[in-house]
């Protein structure tokens, strides 16, 4: 195990994996998120922090293609040609979400099929992308269960027989088995006990590094952001008020709101 990603030589990557320009989403008069723009490069982990209602989850839903924004554009360069994710067909977008992207929901029940076995939950993603050999699918599912520290003997159990922490690890296996280029995570450790969180965080940190994943992680927990992310965006009332390298933003916050956030917690 090592502590941080190995970054490929910057000169070797000609373009960002994801280019986000001017994303806005309104709920009637109310601002969900306003005019958000950034680039995400292969292997980069971006954190979005802010309090409840700051617009971070709205933004994530737009970026992940779950909701359509009122304005703005997201270009994804994971395939042969750049893809404008809002202009492609619903079918094409769904295919993208099943193969090149992964979404880890805060509540594992939103990301798992609760009436399908653990092995089935993981194997389903492989079948989605066209794998057909049953033995190979089961073997790969078994391998992934073990990578997220679920005993192989539990492969035929259903998620409702698992603890919350195990369900979250199973969801992560289901997302990562298809080797996505980009993963979206919404409060991945929310709702878990502190000891369970630590294990999950360490697991995520190692997986993100070993697979060279690009990821966008929404969290209100600055310690989670410190541990998992390279860059940080701070949101308030739908606007990005500050962004930069994670340790810069947390150690030398410039915006009044970021200063308030970082001074409100102990020992981040």
């Amino acid at each position: 195990m090592t502590l941080h990603a190995t970054f490929p030589d910057t000169a070797l990557e000609p373009a960002p994996l994801l280019s986000v320009a001017g994303i806005s989403r309104f709920y009637g008069e109310r601002i969900g998120c306003a005019d958000v723009s950034f680039d995400l490069w292969p292997g980069e982990v971006l954190g979005i922090v802010g309090e409840s209602g700051s617009g971070k989850s709205t933004l994530l839903r737009c970026l992940a293609g779950i909701d359509k924004p009122d304005a703005g554009e997201v270009l994804f360069r994971g395939g042969p040609a750049p893809l404008d994710i809002y202009s492609v067909s619903e079918q094409e977008r769904r295919r993208l979400m099943r193969t090149a992207w992964g979404i880890v929901h805060q509540n594992p029940r939103d990301g798992l099929r609760m009436d399908v076995t653990a092995g089935g939950n993981v194997g389903e993603r492989l079948m989605d992308r066209g794998d057909r050999h049953y033995g190979a699918i089961r073997e790969r599912a078994l391998d992934w269960l073990q990578r997220v520290e679920i005993a192989g003997a539990r492969i035929d159990d259903r998620p409702r027989q698992f603890s919350g922490g195990m369900q979250q690890r199973l969801q992560i296996a289901r997302v990562l088995v298809s080797e996505p280029r980009l993963v979206f995570m919404d409060e991945p450790t929310g709702g878990l006990d502190v000891s369970v969180q630590a294990r999950l965080l360490d697991l995520l940190r190692v997986l993100v590094r070993d697979l060279g994943l690009a990821a966008i992680i929404v969290t209100h927990d600055l310690a989670v952001a410190r541990l998992l992310t390279d860059r940080l965006m701070v949101m308030k009332d739908g606007h990005v008020v500050e962004q930069g390298l994670t340790d810069q933003v947390l150690d030398d916050p410039h915006h009044a709101y970021t200063q308030l956030l970082t001074s409100a917690v102990l020992g981040v």
Binding site: T2, A198, R205
Partner: peptide, 19 residues
Amino acid sequence: VIPRVSALDIVRDPLLARG
């Protein structure tokens, strides 16, 4: 300190990161 990472792995890390 990072949960669950051993002292040896902490020290090995920069070497591995540089290949």
